[in-house]
Design a protein around this nucleic acid. Structure first.
Length: 566
RNA sequence: UGACCGAUGGUGUAACGGUAGCACUACAGUUUUUGGAGCUGUCUGUCAAGGUUCGAAUCCUUGUCGGUCAACCA
């Protein structure tokens, strides 16, 4: 099973651009050949599959080059953050299979150090306290084409700045009354360099530092310095921070940091068809009850995927396959589905479940007789063990597996045709019973004892159906999930449509299924293949009275394609 | 009409001046007691125009298209 680790030959397979950078750095002896990356979520929401890509990238890169990865919460905005999110994020990262370098870090751990750094910049004349309102500042910033105007407070003395900054910290001023700004260049073509705000006043309770602080650092000010403090070598973020890099560098430069400087690199974030990745919009789906929570199995969140039945290995494989580059991309969700099917095909036990039952009576099978048929739990696994499946005179089969007037390529049951009941016998359909409305209520057939599974038989049939013995079956609730949106790019359909216009009304259908006893009593998270239907996973809503299964992903259905083509 | 970044099949991603490859999707064949899975094969691609070179997806120039940036968010 274990793959040999001597990839030396295969190692020539191409490196992504970040791996190339790291290898160059190691070769040139930068950072003493060490690699330390970080995953820096803001605890203001749940992680989604896009974060999972970043996690796999950061942890994977470090692991590949014998480095480590820090988990650091970027908790610089107390009004939006909470420990609920901290806990959920930690759980998700662990579940994905990654170990951070202990302990968990928080940007708030560095508030003191950051304050000292800020004083250092003030003393150098590189930062100043500004009394402009947010509105004034916005007006004065200019546009990308038009330079901004300098703040009237820009040339305060070092002493005055130091004093004011101290009083900001001591709580002398109200929210919004003053900010600390870097003193860079109001005419810079890069908007981020136009004297950006470093600290704002917020009299707010912080989930870790409580009421100790009433000034909080901005992202740009906190992030690079946090990287430096932790000794991060490669600070990897998404493309939208590319324009921030000059500022990241400026802070390091002006703090006179010359040794062990972290460097920021940017890659393109993940986008997936038929879903959305914006935290804000996902929150909207939750708040407005389009889904049942952050972990709704239709959500692209890590917790949603987990409940949907995706395994950590399948998500890691996906992250590997999507690659890493700098161009905008939209990954076809079928790749994600491929990854989970590949995993579960190898690892999920098979079970027969009927979701849309119609009664099948075998007229020549003795009433009251039951046979125990031995069945391999997973035919894909050569070491698979066997289970017993009960067979009797009255069964359920899928309504879709019978047609009274079948088209040419229909290989399933029809009057007069023969099909195999999987693991059991070949049967021939003789007649149907209908109710007064014409709905089929019973199908009657004859079985051929000599065709018992395992015996040599000359009878060849084109179709094999799954079934359950009615008296031996259990009722379960089955939640059939489908994609959340009807459009591949719900946010990009046109200027005057909203992503919510394209919510799929059929993204969830709940049905009652009939299944084998082995599918009962399994713990949440356990996945099975319902033969010929798809992969399903036990939902946490299951209890002693009722099992609930979620459909992870259906099996490929070539008949559906034939049928569609007509 | 600023700065920064990007452009390779339907979708992603390689090729680092020397045969455009891989994966997903789609399609076809094969196999099959899952119309699953597997196996084999097929289709479709270097944004454009110039230049450098024996040779350009790759280097240079110009253009085109796309993304990001004007929160006291991250």
């Amino acid at each position: 099973m274990e793959k040999p680790d001597n990839k030396t030959n295969e190692n020539k397979t191409s490196l992504n651009f970040l791996e190339q950078i790291v290898e160059n750095d190691i070769q040139s002896g930068k950072h003493g050949g060490k690699v330390l990356t970080r995953f820096p979520p803001e605890p203001n929401g749940y992680l989604h599959i896009g974060h999972a890509k970043s996690i796999c990238l950061n942890f994977g890169l470090a692991k590949k080059y014998n480095g480590k990865t820090n988990l650091r919460f970027d908790d610089t905005n107390p009004t939006k953050e909470s420990t609920e999110y901290v806990d959920a994020i930690r759980e998700d990262v662990k579940w994905l299979g990654f170990q951070w370098q202990e302990p968990v870090w928080y940007a708030s751990d560095y508030f003191d150090k950051l304050y000292e750094f800020a004083e250092y910049l003030i003393k150098k004349g590189k930062a100043f306290v500004c009394d402009m309102t947010a509105e004034e500042m916005s007006k004065g910033r200019g546009t990308p084409q038009i330079p901004g105007v300098e703040s009237p407070w820009r040339n305060r003395s070092v002493e005055e700045n130091l004093d004011l900054f101290k009083r900001m910290r001591e709580g002398e001023f109200k929210d919004g009354e003053k900010v600390l700004r870097a003193r860079i260049d109001m005419a810079s073509p890069n908007m981020h360099m136009r004297d950006p705000v470093m600290y704002r006043i917020m009299h707010a309770h912080h989930h870790r530092t409580g009421n100790e602080w009433c000034i909080y650092p901005m992202y740009d000010w906190a992030h690079g310095q946090s990287d430096y403090i932790e000794g991060i070598t490669h600070s990897i973020c998404t493309l939208e921070f590319e324009n921030h890099r000059p500022l990241y560098e400026w802070f390091l430069d002006n703090l006179d940091i010359t040794e062990n400087r972290p460097r920021q690199y940017e890659f393109a974030r993940l986008n997936l068809t038929y879903t959305i990745m914006s935290k804000r919009k996902l929150l909207q789906l939750v708040d407005e009850k389009y889904v049942k929570g952050w972990n709704d199995p239709r959500m692209p969140t890590v917790s949603g995927l987990r409940r949907r039945g995706y395994t950590p290995a399948s998500i890691r494989a996906f992250a590997e396959k999507v690659g890493v580059a700098k161009r905008e991309n939209v990954i076809d969700v079928s790749l994600l589905e491929y990854c989970i099917k590949e995993d579960l095909n190898k690892n999920a036990s098979r079970v027969m479940t009927v979701l849309n039952p119609v009664k099948l009576v075998i007229d020549n099978y003795p009433e009251g007789k039951t046979e125990q048929l031995p069945v391999k739990v997973n035919p894909e696994d050569p070491e698979s063990c066997f289970k017993m499946v009960s067979f009797s005179r009255e069964l359920y089969i899928e309504r879709e597996d019978f047609m009274e007037n079948p088209p040419k390529k229909f290989f399933r049951m029809a009057p007069g045709t023969e099909v195999r009941l999987k693991y059991a016998y070949v049967v021939r359909c003789d007649s149907v019973v209908k109710d007064y409305e014409g709905n089929i209520t019973e199908i009657h057939c004859t079985y051929f004892p000599e065709t018992k599974s395992g015996l040599p038989s000359d009878k060849k049939v084109k179709g094999t159906l799954h079934w359950v013995s009615i008296s031996h079956s259990y009722e379960i609730e089955v939640r059939l999930y489908d994609r959340l949106f009807t459009e591949p790019e719900p946010e990009n359909v046109s200027e005057d449509t909203d992503f919510k216009d394209f919510l799929n009304p059929d993204s969830l259908k709940v049905v009652t299924g009939y299944t084998e006893p082995v599918a009962i009593g399994l713990r949440p998270g356990k996945s099975l293949q319902f033969e010929r239907l798809g992969y399903f996973v036990v939902d946490p809503d299951s209890n002693d009275e009722k099992m609930v299964y979620n459909r992870v992903v259906p099996l490929r259905d070539s008949w559906a394609k034939i049928e569609q083509k007509g």
